[in-house]
Measured scan of single mutants.
Amino acid sequence: GTEDLKEEAKKALKKGDKERAKRALKKAGLSEDQIKKFIKEVL
């Protein structure tokens, strides 16, 4: 589900894998702006 994808994105970001995080967030249905915001909040 969406929460799982967001968790996956957080883990990817902590490993420095932004591309993987972006893919997971796109799958979760987030827009580009939401993805940028999510990444900023996590990092």
Results as ranks from 00 to 15, higher is better:
Lys37His: 11
Ala12Trp: 15
Glu19Ser: 07
Gly1Arg: 11
Lys18Thr: 15
Lys10Val: 13
Phe38His: 02
Ala24Val: 13
Leu43Ile: 09
Leu43Ala: 08
Gly1Ala: 13
Lys11Glu: 14
Gly16Trp: 04
Leu13Gly: 01
Ile39Thr: 03
Ala12Leu: 13
Glu32Tyr: 08
Ile35Gly: 00
Lys22Pro: 00
Lys10Tyr: 12
Leu13Arg: 01
Glu19Trp: 07
Lys36Trp: 11
Ile39Lys: 01
Lys15Arg: 13
Ser31Thr: 13
Val42Ile: 11
Glu7Leu: 09
Lys36Arg: 12
Glu8Arg: 05
Ala12Tyr: 14
Val42Asp: 03
Leu13Ile: 11
Thr2Arg: 10
Ala21Ile: 03
Lys22Trp: 14
Lys40Gly: 09
Phe38Trp: 08
Lys11Asp: 13
Lys14Gly: 09
Lys37Thr: 12
Ile35Arg: 02
Phe38Pro: 00
Arg20Ser: 14
Lys40Val: 10
Lys37Ala: 14
Lys15His: 13
Arg23Lys: 12
Glu32Ile: 08
Glu7Phe: 06
Asp17Lys: 04
Glu8Gln: 10
Gln34Ala: 10
Lys22Asp: 06
Asp17Trp: 07
Ala21Trp: 03
Glu7Arg: 08
Ala9Pro: 01
Thr2Leu: 14
Ala21Pro: 00
Glu7Ile: 07
Asp17Arg: 04
Glu41Thr: 09
Glu41Met: 10
Asp33Pro: 06
Arg20Gln: 12
Gln34Leu: 06
Ile39Arg: 00
Glu41Asn: 09
Lys27Ile: 08
Glu3Ile: 11
Lys6Ala: 06
Leu43Asp: 06
Lys22Met: 15
Lys6Gln: 09
Ala28Asp: 03
Lys27Val: 07
Ala28His: 04
Ser31Leu: 05
Arg20Phe: 11
Lys36Thr: 12
Gly16Thr: 02
Lys37Ile: 13
Lys27Ala: 13
Leu30His: 02
Gly16Gln: 04
Leu13Lys: 01
Ile39Asn: 01
Glu8Ala: 08
Leu30Trp: 11
Asp17Leu: 07
Lys14Met: 14
Glu41Lys: 09
Lys15Ala: 15
Glu41Asp: 12
Gln34Lys: 04
Lys11Gln: 14
Lys10Ser: 06
Asp17Gln: 09
Lys10Met: 12
Lys40His: 14
Asp4Trp: 15
Leu5Ser: 04
Glu8Cys: 06
Ala28Thr: 03
Glu7Pro: 01
Asp17Met: 06
Ala21Phe: 03
Lys36Met: 13
Ala24Phe: 15
Arg23Pro: 00
Lys15Ile: 14
Lys22Leu: 15
Gln34Phe: 05
Glu7Lys: 08
Ala28Glu: 03
Gln34Gly: 05
Ser31Ile: 03
Asp17Asn: 07
Ala9Gly: 02
Leu13Met: 05
Gly1His: 13
Glu7Met: 09
Gly1Cys: 09
Glu3Ala: 11
Glu32Val: 08
Lys27Leu: 13
Ser31His: 04
Ile39Glu: 03
Gly16Pro: 02
Leu30Arg: 00
Leu25Val: 00
Ile39Ala: 02
Glu32Phe: 06
Glu3Gln: 10
Gly29Leu: 03
Ala28Tyr: 05
Leu30Val: 02
Lys10Ala: 09
Lys36Asn: 14
Ala24His: 08
Ala9Thr: 02
Gly16Asn: 06
Asp17Ile: 02
Gly1Ile: 13
Glu8Gly: 03
Glu3Ser: 10
Gly29Glu: 02
Lys26Gly: 05
Asp4His: 11
Leu25Pro: 00
Glu32Leu: 08
Ile39Gln: 02
Asp33Phe: 07
Leu5His: 06
Glu3Pro: 08
Asp4Cys: 10
Ala21Val: 04
Leu25Lys: 00
Glu32Ala: 09
Thr2Lys: 10
Asp17Tyr: 06
Lys15Asp: 14
Ala28Trp: 04
Leu5Gln: 04
Lys26Arg: 14
Leu13Gln: 01
Arg20Thr: 14
Lys27Gln: 12
Asp17Phe: 07
Lys11Asn: 12
Gly1Pro: 11
Leu25Trp: 01
Asp33Arg: 09
Asp33Gly: 09
Ala24Thr: 08
Lys36Pro: 02
Lys36Tyr: 12
Glu19Thr: 07
Leu30Ile: 03
Leu25Ile: 01
Ala28Phe: 05
Ala28Val: 04
Lys14Ala: 13
Glu7Ala: 10
Ser31Lys: 05
Asp17His: 07
Ile35Phe: 02
Ala9Asp: 00
Lys22His: 13
Gly29Tyr: 02
Gly29Asp: 02
Gly16Ser: 03
Glu32Gly: 06
Leu25Asn: 00
Thr2Ser: 11
Thr2Gly: 10
Ala12Glu: 05
Ala21Asn: 00
Glu8Ile: 12
Lys15Tyr: 11
Leu5Met: 07
Glu32Asp: 13
Glu32Gln: 07
Lys40Pro: 01
Gln34Tyr: 05
Lys26Asn: 06
Val42Ser: 07
Glu3Gly: 08
Lys27Cys: 04
Glu7Ser: 08
Phe38Gly: 00
Asp17Ala: 04
Glu32Lys: 08
Lys22Phe: 13
Lys15Phe: 11
Gln34Asp: 13
Asp33Asn: 09
Lys14Ser: 10
Glu19His: 06
Leu25Thr: 00
Leu5Asp: 04
Ser31Asp: 11
Glu8Met: 10
Glu3Thr: 09
Lys27Ser: 09
Gly1Leu: 14
Arg20His: 11
Asp17Gly: 02
Lys37Arg: 10
Glu8Pro: 01
Lys18Trp: 14
Asp4Ile: 10
Arg20Tyr: 11
Ala28Met: 10
Lys40Trp: 15
Thr2Pro: 12
Lys14Trp: 12
Leu25Cys: 01
Lys40Leu: 14
Lys37Pro: 01
Lys27Thr: 07
Glu41Pro: 01
Lys36Leu: 14
Lys18Gly: 08
Glu7Trp: 08
Lys11Tyr: 08
Lys11His: 11
Ser31Arg: 05
Lys40Gln: 14
Lys11Met: 12
Ala9Ser: 02
Asp17Val: 02
Lys6Trp: 15
Ser31Asn: 11
Lys6Pro: 03
Leu25Gln: 00
Ala12Met: 10
Leu30Asp: 00
Lys18Cys: 11
Lys15Gln: 14
Ala21Arg: 01
Lys18Val: 15
Glu3Trp: 07
Lys27Tyr: 05
Leu25Gly: 00
Gly16His: 05
Lys27Arg: 09
Lys26Cys: 05
Arg20Gly: 15
Lys37Asp: 14
Glu19Leu: 08
Gly1Glu: 13
Arg23Ile: 14
Lys36Cys: 06
Arg23His: 11
Glu3Val: 09
Glu8Val: 10
Ala28Arg: 01
Asp33Leu: 09
Gly1Phe: 13
Lys6Ile: 15
Leu5Ala: 09
Glu8His: 05
Leu13Pro: 01
Leu25Asp: 00
Ala28Lys: 02
Phe38Ala: 02
Lys14Gln: 13
Gly1Thr: 14
Ala21Glu: 00
Ala12Phe: 13
Glu19Lys: 08
Arg23Ser: 12
Lys36Asp: 15
Glu7Val: 07
Ala9Ile: 06
Lys37Leu: 13
Ile35Glu: 01
Ala21Met: 04
Gln34Cys: 05
Ala21Cys: 05
Lys6Asn: 04
Glu19Gly: 07
Leu30Glu: 01
Ile39Ser: 01
Ile39His: 01
Phe38Tyr: 05
Ile35His: 00
Lys22Ser: 07
Glu32Trp: 09
Lys11Phe: 07
Asp33Ile: 09
Leu30Gly: 00
Ala9His: 01
Lys11Gly: 06
Lys36His: 13
Glu3Arg: 08
Arg23Glu: 15
Thr2Val: 14
Leu30Phe: 12
Arg20Ala: 15
Lys26Leu: 12
Thr2Glu: 12
Phe38Leu: 04
Ala9Phe: 04
Thr2Ala: 12
Arg23Trp: 10
Gly29Phe: 02
Glu19Pro: 06
Lys6Met: 15
Leu43Met: 11
Ala9Val: 08
Phe38Gln: 01
Leu13Phe: 04
Leu25Ser: 00
Phe38Cys: 03
Lys40Glu: 15
Lys40Thr: 13
Arg23Gln: 14
Ile35Lys: 01
Thr2Phe: 13
Ser31Glu: 05
Gly29Met: 03
Lys27Trp: 05
Arg20Ile: 07
Lys37Asn: 12
Ala24Gly: 02
Gly29Arg: 02
Gln34Met: 08
Lys37Trp: 09
Gln34Pro: 00
Leu5Lys: 03
Asp33Glu: 13
Leu43Phe: 08
Ile35Asp: 00
Ile39Cys: 04
Lys10Asn: 05
Arg23Ala: 15
Glu41Ile: 07
Val42Trp: 14
Thr2Asn: 11
Glu19Asp: 10
Val42Thr: 08
Glu32Thr: 07
Glu32His: 09
Leu30Met: 12
Lys40Phe: 14
Lys15Glu: 15
Gln34Arg: 03
Lys37Phe: 09
Ile35Pro: 00
Gln34Thr: 04
Lys6Thr: 08
Lys14Asn: 09
Val42Met: 10
Ile35Gln: 03
Leu30Pro: 00
Glu41Cys: 05
Ala28Gly: 04
Phe38Val: 03
Lys26Ala: 11
Arg20Trp: 13
Leu5Val: 05
Val42Gln: 10
Gly29Ile: 00
Leu5Pro: 06
Ile39Met: 10
Ser31Trp: 02
Lys40Met: 14
Thr2Asp: 11
Asp33Lys: 10
Leu5Arg: 03
Lys14Glu: 13
Val42Arg: 03
Lys22Asn: 07
Lys22Ala: 11
Glu8Trp: 10
Leu5Gly: 04
Lys36Ser: 12
Leu30Tyr: 10
